[in-house]
């Protein structure tokens, strides 16, 4: 199996969470003997090459972060330049987001199935996973640990050829957190996380508080 992988994150590869996820995912693919070629939409110089690859490959995987409840604007811009294929080409998606609950990604997932149809491609499922914002803020082993579960999904995808298996569906985690967890996590958001985020913000060179209002 050969997979054309398009990283549709607008963030440059070096800082792309989706790229780190794909790093683990493709290890799993390779372990199962599958091959892949990966392109980054953030590099507009490669769009002609990606378009050619889209027409030449029959097994496409588009991975992206959820942007305002659906696909990022840069992905729409790229897709608008493509022609429908209608030749049995398969398309699968990895949809990842910052919020932890799977429910937050379902609207985007619905669109991806519609998108496959609109591009004349055969829909082979979406791997949905939230809770990935921290990849950006982690380094080294801590970061590797966060993305490591995606390796098993790479293995599963190489074996199944789609994301329809129960294992892939379960990978999304809980749709919503139960009430006790919401209370506990809510307390953490209120009392612990703001100082963690402020620390992260200062590391980015911020000179204003996180809730600063520049346009009063």
């Amino acid at each position: 199996m050969h997979v054309l992988i398009i990283n549709a994150s607008p963030r440059v590869k070096q800082y792309s969470n989706t790229d780190k996820i794909l790093g683990a995912f493709t290890k799993g693919l390779s372990e199962e003997g599958a091959t892949f070629s990966q392109y980054e939409l953030s590099d507009r110089r490669s769009w002609d090459e990606i378009r050619n690859a889209y027409y030449e490959n029959d097994n496409i995987l588009i991975a992206m972060p959820l942007f305002v409840e659906c696909v990022p604007g840069i992905l729409m811009e790229f897709l608008e330049t493509l022609k429908s294929k209608n030749d049995g080409t398969k398309v699968s998606f990895i949809l990842q987001g910052g919020f932890y609950e799977a429910s937050q990604l379902r609207c985007g997932e619905t669109y991806l199935e519609m998108l496959a149809k609109n591009l004349g491609l055969e829909y082979a499922g979406t791997l949905v996973k939230g809770g990935n914002f921290g990849i950006r803020l982690a380094e080294g082993e801590a970061r590797d640990k966060q993305v490591e579960p995606f390796k098993e999904m790479g293995v599963e995808f190489a074996r199944e050829g789609s994301f329809f298996s129960p294992k892939c569906k379960a990978f999304a985690g809980p749709e919503l957190f139960p009430l006790p967890v919401r209370i506990m996590v809510g307390m953490a958001f209120k009392f612990a996380m703001p100082s963690y985020f402020t620390k992260a913000s200062k590391a980015f060179g911020a000179k204003k508080p996180l809730n600063y209002r520049p346009y009063k």
């Binding site: 994150s9 607008p10 963030r11 800082y15 953030s42 972060p65 942007f67 990022p72 950006r136 985020f197 992260a200 913000s201 980015f204 060179g205 911020a206 204003k208 508080p209 996180l210 809730n211 600063y212 209002r213 520049p214 346009y215």
Partner: peptide, 12 residues
């Protein structure tokens, strides 16, 4: 571009 600067570096 997903840089998150509007949250982290130059809030808002």
């Amino acid at each position: 571009i997903g840089c998150n600067y509007c949250w982290l570096k130059t809030p808002g």
